[in-house]
Simulated assay, not measured.
Amino acid sequence: MEAAIFRGPGDVRIETTPDPEIEASTDAVVRITHTAICGSDLWFYRGERDLSEGSPIGHEPMGVVEAVGDDVRHVEPGDRVLAPFSISCGECEFCRKGLYTSCARDLSWGEDGGGAQGEKVRAPYADGTLVRVPDRYANDEDALEALLPLTDVMGTGHHAAVSAGVGAGDTAVVVGDGAVGLCGVLAAQRLGAERIVAMGHHEDRLDIAESFGATEVVSARGEDAIEEARELTAGGANHVLECVGAESSMETAAAVARPGGTIGYVGVPLGVESTGFLGTMFGKNVSLQGGVAPVRAYIDELMADVLQGTLDPSPIFTKTVGLDGVPEGYRAMDEREAVKVMVKLD
């Protein structure tokens, strides 16, 4: 089969690799029909995170089950499925409490099942990891494209909103205009926020934020952005979604949080070395909640809204490529020419 392989910073190639096979009775093999390139994939692409040369890549799979192990009960060949970015057994202490990203099995796409940016993938612990799409939507392309973000960014944006305590009538500030930040806006709107201030630096992305429910946008940088957001919220918001993970974005989130407020943080803290923002939070009694999003815990409720037509995060995909176009997709995201790239293999 063909799959995307990492060969070094700035070097992603499509290569021929062995087809995955059932290795354990709890496995499934899935033929990928849709997947995506994630902002976190850019870390190794830019050389900001170590990844072994020759590694298969991609962690947002959607496709059709081709084969299952003897102990798989919840899916069968022919089922349309999607899966979150984190593999989970569904049975350990942490999976039972909904903290799927802390699964005791500690498996991940790429290392343990093959990368999702390929023609096929092996899904370990298929019953705990794969989510079946109802048959009536199995070939509905619009529905499938709206469901694809549930594998990662929509669930992650939702985790930010839930962690920040967003509810009906609230004012929320979303820091970051990447795919996760845009989905955070959508999640805050879904949870009933009355005002949503989206903070970012790209006008085209802030346009998407407004279409997702942002009532105000802030495109300034640095202290000017903080001042504008605080003015818009009369001193800060009780609910702040940090969706980037950079030191500057954490500092911004701390600065725009209202005394007694809560920051829901989901941006992976790559390169955050200073803890100065903790002093700001401490002085204002601001709570910090969140972490890596247990997307599997949210997929069922978000899928229900997608399929009934009340939730559609698909506009985050501003570029679509085939498998051969994955290297170009990485380049486009790296150079900010695309918010998020969808890969279609059908």
Score class of each variant (00 low, 15 high):
93 E>D: 04
31 R>P: 14
20 P>C: 07
172 A>F: 11
123 A>I: 01
298 Y>A: 02
342 M>S: 11
320 T>K: 11
133 V>G: 04
255 A>M: 03
190 R>K: 12
330 Y>M: 11
91 E>W: 01
88 S>N: 06
39 G>W: 01
276 G>H: 03
147 L>W: 06
4 A>G: 10
322 G>S: 15
339 V>C: 09
191 L>E: 12
257 A>R: 07
304 A>S: 04
142 D>F: 02
289 Q>S: 14
106 D>K: 02
207 D>C: 06
94 F>H: 13
293 A>H: 01
62 M>Q: 15
112 D>F: 00
17 T>W: 07
122 R>P: 07
312 D>G: 04
14 I>P: 08
226 I>T: 09
15 E>I: 07
322 G>R: 10
67 A>G: 13
38 C>E: 03
207 D>Y: 04
187 A>L: 04
319 K>C: 14
184 G>E: 13
230 R>D: 01
233 T>E: 05
158 H>F: 14
320 T>L: 11
145 E>Y: 10
6 F>R: 05
233 T>P: 03
290 G>R: 05
309 G>W: 03
196 I>G: 03
280 T>A: 15
310 T>S: 13
210 E>G: 11
14 I>Q: 05
152 D>R: 01
279 G>I: 03
18 P>C: 13
130 L>Y: 03
298 Y>L: 01
86 S>R: 01
302 L>K: 05
241 L>Q: 10
329 G>F: 15
108 S>G: 02
90 G>M: 00
148 L>Y: 08
254 A>F: 08
57 I>M: 13
332 A>M: 14
261 G>N: 08
236 G>K: 09
154 M>I: 02
29 V>H: 02
341 V>L: 13
245 G>T: 02
335 E>V: 09
64 V>R: 15
89 C>Y: 01
17 T>M: 08
204 D>N: 12
215 T>L: 00
219 S>V: 05
166 V>M: 05
53 E>S: 03
159 H>A: 08
53 E>L: 03
214 A>G: 04
